[in-house]
Design a binder for these strands. Structure first.
Lengths: 228, 228
DNA sequence: GCCTGTGAACAGTTTCACAGCG
DNA sequence: CGCTGTGAAACTGTTCACAGGC
C-alpha cells in the first residue's frame, strides 16, 4: 500500500483529527500510543483507526503501538503540511472575522495572507495583523503570495461571483461557507460547509430520538461519540 | 415507504439543502420545479434527488415535477421545522459571536434563547437582542425555555465540561465547534464540526491534484460541484 | 500476551436504467 | 412524450475477526 492508491476522503478527514491529537500528545512529552488510546481520544473505533493508518504503510510496532512523533510527522507529510498554505479570505462579516481571528488555522499550517471585503466600511480595518483590502487588490495579492486556497464567507448572493474571481486570480481550492452550491471550472476543488445544515441534521436526530415526551429515552441506542 | 423506515442521514443533510433552495424558489413566486432543475441548484445528481424525496413518499407529479410550496412544507415537516427549536450557545468568542449574529439560523426555525460565557469581561455584552449571561444561569435558562439544543463554541480545554453541564441541564443535542471529541451519555446526540479539518482536507485534495508545478492540470478528473 | 496490519463480511450510499403515470 | 418513482447494480466505507510479529 504505497501512496499510489488514493487515500479515501473519509480517511483523510480522520487523519487530520489524529494529527491534532498526536500533536497534543507529543507536546506533553508522550512517546508512544496504542491504537485504542488514540482512537478513543479521536472519537473513533480502534480497528477503523488502524485501517486508516494502513493507507500510509506500516508505521507502528506490534505489541507496542505507534511512536507519537514519527506518526505525527508521517501524517503531516501525507496531508501536505510540510509547507504552509497561503489562504485568502473574502467576506469579513461576523463569520469572516471569526475565521480570520481563529487560531486553529495558523497552528496547523494555514496562513491567511489577504482579507478582502466589498464594503468600503470594512476596508482598512485590521484583524490581527492584517488589513482588510478592497476586492480590486485580490488578483495582485493572490499573484504575489501564490495563494492556492480561497475561503468564501460572503452572503449567498455574491458567492458565485467571488468564486469566479478567485478562480480567475489563480486560486485552486475553495472553502465555501455561503449557503449556495458553487460551480467552478474542472481543476478547482470546492468544499461546502453549511452551518445551518448541521443544525438541521441535529434537530432531525433530536426529533427522531425523543418522539414521545412521555417516553423517557426512546430506544437508548443513540450514538454518543462525535466525529468529523 | 412511510416515515417508519429511518431516513438515511446523508439524505437528511441533503433535504436541508433542498429546503433552502425551495424556500428561495417559493419566495420568487415559482410554482413547480423538475428534479433536474432542483438538483442542479442544490449541486447534486437528479436521480439521487428523486431517491432522496422517495423517502417522504410520492410527492411529485409525473410528467410535470414538484409543487414548490407543497414540497417545501413536506420537507420542513419531516425535518421537524414546524415548531421552532430553542438553542443555547456557550462560548461567546469570535466564533460564538458570529454564530449568535448569523441570520441563517433564525431564518430556518432555530432561535438562540441564551448566550453564555465564563469570562466576566463578556458577560453583560449584548449580541443582537440577547445579553451574554454567566454560566451560573445555564440550568435556569434551559429549564425555563425548554431548550433542547446546545451549541459549544468554547476553547477545546473546557468543551467537555461545558458538554457535561449542558447534558445535566437537560439539553439533548449538541453541536460542537471545539476541536475535541466529546463523550456524552446515551440519549444525547453530539455532532462535531471542525473548521480546520475542512481546510486540511481541502489542502490534501489540492496537493493531490497539482502534484507537479510544471504539469498544468494533473489528470483533469477533479470534481467541481461541492456538497454538504 | 499484547497490539498491529489486513482480508473478508457487512452496511450504507450512489448511480443507473427503466417501468409507470399524467 | 416527459418526468417521477424505484428496484437492481456498483461502489465506497465500516466493522469484525484473526493472522502475524514483537
Amino acid at each position: 500500500m504505497q501512496s499510489r492508491p488514493r487515500i479515501p476522503e473519509a480517511t483523510v478527514a480522520r487523519l487530520a483529527v489524529y494529527l491534532r491529537v498526536l500533536t497534543g500528545l507529543a507536546d506533553s512529552g508522550r512517546g508512544t500510543v496504542s491504537s485504542g488510546e488514540l482512537a478513543s481520544a479521536a472519537g473513533v473505533n480502534p480497528a477503523g483507526l488502524r485501517k486508516d493508518l494502513s493507507h500510509l504503510g506500516p508505521c507502528g510496532v506490534r505489541g507496542v503501538g505507534y511512536d507519537v512523533a514519527t506518526l505525527r510527522d508521517r501524517i503531516a507529510a501525507v496531508l501536505g503540511m510540510e509547507t504552509a498554505h497561503a489562504c485568502v479570505l473574502v467576506g469579513i462579516g461576523n463569520l469572516g472575522s471569526a475565521l480570520a481571528g481563529y487560531g486553529g488555522f495558523g497552528n496547523r499550517g494555514f496562513e491567511f495572507v489577504g482579507l478582502f471585503d466589498a464594503s468600503p466600511a470594512r476596508v482598512g480595518q485590521r484583524i490581527g495583523d492584517l488589513p482588510v483590502r478592497p476586492m480590486e487588490e485580490l488578483d495582485e495579492v493572490v499573484a504575489a503570495t501564490r495563494a492556492t486556497i480561497g475561503v468564501i464567507a460572503t452572503p449567498a448572493e455574491v458567492a458565485q461571483r467571488v468564486c469566479d474571481r478567485l478562480t480567475r486570480a489563480g486560486v485552486r481550492s475553495i472553502l465555501n461557507f455561503a449557503p449556495v452550491a458553487l460551480t467552478a471550472p474542472a481543476g478547482v476543488g470546492v468544499r461546502q460547509v453549511d452551518l445551518s445544515v448541521e443544525l438541521q441534521v441535529l434537530a432531525f436526530l433530536d426529533k427522531q430520538r425523543g418522539a414521545l415526551p412521555g417516553t423517557a429515552l426512546g430506544t437508548g441506542l443513540a450514538p454518543a461519540g462525535g466525529m468529523a
